[in-house]
Design a protein around this nucleic acid. Structure first.
Lengths: 186, 186
DNA sequence: GTCTATAATAGGATAGAC
DNA sequence: GTCTATCCTATTATAGAC
C-alpha cells in the first residue's frame, strides 16, 4: 500500500463532484471518503481544517480552472462569436447539459456560509466581469454590457435550479441558446 | 400549560422559514423545535413522518397559498399590467426583496430529493402556466408566451441565487424590473 | 500518508408520564 | 398535546500503530 495513487488535483475534482451534488451540509465525511477513496484520517491529513477547508480549497481550485479554461479564452484573440460559443460550450459541458448543479450555489446555500462569502462573491463578480468585457469589446455600451452579463449569469443559475426541480434539461438548454442569441446584439 | 397556543398554519409558516433558510439537509430538528416552540415529541405528534412529512406539508400549504394569493389574482379581471404588477409585488414581498431563498430550490437541492420531485415539478409547472396564461391573454403568441414564462421563473430563481451569493439584492430587483418591462411586450 | 479503532457529539426518532 | 428522558445511529474529528 504505497502512497498517493491519487493526485491532489484528482481529490479536489472528486470533492467538487460531491459538494455540487450533495451540497455542503448534505455532504458527509463518509460519502467524501467513499468518493475519494481516502480514509477519514487521510482526509484530515490533507485538510486539517476538515470539511470547511475542503470546500474552500475546491473553490480555489475551481477558480483557477475557470481562469484558465473559461476567462482567458474569453479574452483571447479571434472572432468574438467564436469565443462566446466556446464559453457556452464549456459551460454546457461543466454542468453536464444541465444535469449537474453549481458549486457556487450549493456553498452559498449552506447553513454557515460565512467562510465562503468572500470567495463566492469574488467568483460571481469575476465571471460577470469576463462576460461584460466581451460584450463591451463587441461594441455593447458599458451599462448595457454589465446588465447583460449579470443577466446571463442569472439565467444560467436559474436554469440549473429549474431544470433540476423539473427533472428535465430543457430550461438549461434554452437559456444557453438565448444567451448565445442576444448577448452580443448591438 | 394548556394546548395549542400556536395554530397549525402558524407552525407550517415557521417551518417554511426554517427550510428556506437552512435547506432541508441543514434544518435540524433542534432548530425546528426552537423555531416552532414545540418539543420534538409534539412535532412527531403533528408530523408522524418526521422531517420529510414536515417539508411535504409545508410544500402543500405553500401551493395553496400561491394558488390563492398569486395565481388566482393573476387570472382575475382588471387591467393586465396591474395584475402583473400585483404578482411581482407579491413575489418581491415573499422573497423579502431578494433576501430570502426559494423553498422549491432548497428542497430540490436536498440529498434525498425523491419525495419532493413530483410536487416540485408540479409547482414550477403551475407557476409557469399561470404566467403563460397572462401573456397569452395579453396577445403574446402561444410558443413565445411559454418561453417568456419559463424565462421569468428562471430569472427569479437565478437572481435569488446570485443575490444571496453576492450579498446584495441588486440582481433580484433588476430581474423583477426586467420581467415587468418585457413579459407582456407584443 | 494511510490505516484501524475510538472518542465525542449531534442527528432523527420513540417511550411513557402527565 | 406536550413534556422529560432516552435510544440508536450517523456525524465530525482524533489517537496511535504501521
Amino acid at each position: 500500500m504505497p502512497a498517493a495513487i491519487i493526485t491532489k488535483d484528482e481529490v479536489l475534482s472528486r470533492l467538487l463532484e460531491v459538494f455540487r451534488r450533495d451540497g455542503y451540509d448534505g455532504a458527509s465525511l463518509a460519502e467524501i471518503s467513499r468518493a475519494t477513496g481516502l480514509g477519514k484520517s487521510s482526509l484530515y491529513n490533507h485538510f486539517p481544517g476538515g470539511k470547511e477547508q475542503m470546500a474552500l480549497e475546491v473553490l480555489a481550485a475551481l477558480g483557477a480552472s475557470l481562469e484558465r479554461d473559461l476567462f482567458a479564452p474569453l479574452a483571447a484573440a479571434g472572432p468574438r462569436e467564436k469565443r462566446l460559443d466556446a464559453m457556452l460550450e464549456a459551460i454546457d459541458a461543466f454542468y453536464d447539459g444541465g444535469n449537474k448543479a453549481c458549486l457556487l450555489e450549493r456553498l452559498a446555500a449552506s447553513v454557515d456560509r460565512r467562510p465562503f462569502s468572500r470567495p463566492l462573491a469574488a467568483a460571481f463578480t469575476r465571471w460577470m466581469g469576463a462576460i461584460e468585457a466581451l460584450a463591451i469589446e463587441a461594441g455593447v455600451k458599458g451599462a448595457v454590457a454589465a446588465r447583460r452579463a449579470e443577466d446571463a449569469v442569472v439565467r444560467i443559475e436559474g436554469a440549473l435550479v429549474v431544470s433540476a426541480a423539473m427533472g428535465e434539461t430543457g430550461p438549461f438548454e434554452r437559456a444557453l441558446a438565448d444567451i448565445r442569441a442576444t448577448l452580443l446584439e448591438p
